[in-house]
Amino acid sequence: MGGLIDAAVLPEEGRHADAIFAVAVEDGAVVVWEYDEALTDERKEAAQDRFDRLSQRSPSAEDSDESDE
């Protein structure tokens, strides 16, 4: 298995970027798609929290030296 998957085969609630699924595969074919809304939301929040922390970090000493030039 590998490659692209047509969005039409995915459960409708999971047809968005970064959706997380649990799948069951038999003989190389996906037989069950299960969208994991809770895990998708958890990862989205964790990524946003990390982005927020990174955007609020104070400049390093090197950054301030460069701005003085």
Rank of each mutant, 00 (worst) to 15 (best):
Val23Pro: 04
Asp41Asn: 15
Glu62His: 10
Ser67Phe: 13
Leu4Val: 13
Pro11His: 07
Ala29Phe: 08
Asp52Phe: 00
Ser67Ala: 13
Ser55Arg: 15
Ala19Pro: 01
Leu54Asp: 02
Ile5Pro: 00
Ala61Phe: 14
Arg53Lys: 12
Pro11Gly: 09
Gln56Lys: 14
Met1Val: 11
Arg15Phe: 05
Arg53Val: 15
Asp52Tyr: 00
Glu69Val: 11
Asp63Pro: 05
Asp52Trp: 01
Glu45Pro: 01
Val31Asp: 07
Phe51Ser: 12
Ala46Leu: 13
Phe21Pro: 01
Ile5Trp: 04
Ala38Thr: 01
Val25Asp: 05
Val23Met: 01
Met1Cys: 09
Val9Glu: 07
Ser60Gly: 13
Asp49Met: 11
Ala8Gly: 07
Ile20Gln: 09
Ser64Gly: 08
Arg50His: 09
Ala17Gly: 12
Asp18Tyr: 08
Ser55Glu: 15
Glu12Tyr: 03
Ser64Thr: 15
Gly14Gln: 05
Asp41Lys: 15
Val31Ser: 08
Leu39Met: 06
Ala29Pro: 02
Leu54Cys: 04
Ala29Arg: 12
Asp49Ser: 12
Asp41Arg: 13
Glu26Cys: 10
Asp65Ile: 15
Asp18Met: 07
Val31Gln: 09
Asp27Ile: 04
Arg53Trp: 05
Arg53Cys: 10
Arg43His: 10
Val25Lys: 04
Asp36Arg: 01
Glu62Ser: 12
Ala61Tyr: 15
Ala19Trp: 00
Glu26Pro: 04
Leu39Glu: 07
Met1Pro: 00
Asp6Ala: 11
Asp27Ala: 10
Gly3Asp: 02
His16Met: 09
Asp63Phe: 05
Glu69Leu: 13
Arg15Met: 02
Gly2Leu: 08
Asp65His: 10
His16Lys: 09
Ala46Trp: 03
Gln56Asp: 10
Asp36Trp: 01
Val31Gly: 04
Ala38Arg: 04
Arg50Pro: 05
Ala61Met: 15
Phe21Asn: 00
Arg15Val: 03
Leu10Arg: 01
Ala38Lys: 07
Glu37Thr: 07
Asp52Thr: 03
Val23Phe: 05
Val23Leu: 02
Trp33Tyr: 03
Val30Ala: 08
Val31Glu: 08
Ala19Ile: 00
Glu45Tyr: 03
Ala61Arg: 12
Ala8Asn: 09
